[in-house]
């Protein structure tokens, strides 16, 4: 059942990204809503499977934005790094199964975890993109704005889903 819910979340966040968030931008910065999947995927899933899910999600995003390989690479890599990033702030024994949530981690730890994932992912994505086109000003602009926007939106979604 948790797997089904996770799958549903992935599909919903993909739809939201492709149809809504990709079209709202602030000076090149975009809300990377699908990162919610990387933040919240249950930790007990086999890691190779998590990485594979990342690849599939990235590949689908690439299909919609006609940039083969770009999101696939960044998503694969962030899914590989999410547990090491999580374990920087939480001891592995403390969170053995289920999704990392605000409730389980506490406000400060969750915020740190979320901001690390957002920063690492934005750097990965926009550095990979920089192979096509490198411009330091727009690069910094895109990274910082995407991090801020994504952080705010994902934090809001998490807080909203906790209050029940």
């Amino acid at each position: 059942m948790p797997a089904l819910i996770a799958l549903l979340w992935i599909v919903i966040s993909l739809f939201a990204q492709v149809l809504i968030f990709n079209h709202l931008s602030l000076a090149g910065g975009v809300v990377l809503f699908y990162l919610y999947m990387a933040v919240k995927l249950p930790v007990e899933l086999p890691r190779p499977l998590q990485i594979f899910i990342g690849f599939i999600v990235g590949f689908i995003l690439d299909m919609f934005s006609s940039t083969p390989g770009l999101h696939a690479f960044a998503c694969t890599t962030i899914m590989w790094m999410r547990l090491p990033l999580l374990h920087m702030y939480v001891v592995a024994e403390d969170i053995k199964n289920g999704a990392p949530t605000l409730q389980k981690l506490g406000f400060e730890t969750f915020m740190r975890y979320l901001i690390s994932i957002t920063i690492v992912y934005s750097l990965l994505l926009y550095l990979t993109e920089a192979f096509t086109l490198f411009n330091i000003v727009s690069f910094l602009c895109r990274v910082s704005l995407s991090v801020i926007l994504t952080f705010i939106v994902l934090m809001a979604v998490e807080i909203a889903s906790t209050r029940r």
Binding site: I51, F55, D62, M63, G69, A72, F73, W80
Partner: peptide, 26 residues
């Protein structure tokens, strides 16, 4: 797993010519 999938992505990424890709990637 990461290495394999990252390689697959890189191959897709470094196909330079947008006209030569399969229509499925767009």
């Amino acid at each position: 797993t990461w290495l394999l999938l990252a390689l697959v992505s890189s191959v897709l990424l470094f196909q330079r010519n947008p006209y030569q890709r399969s229509v499925w990637f767009g």
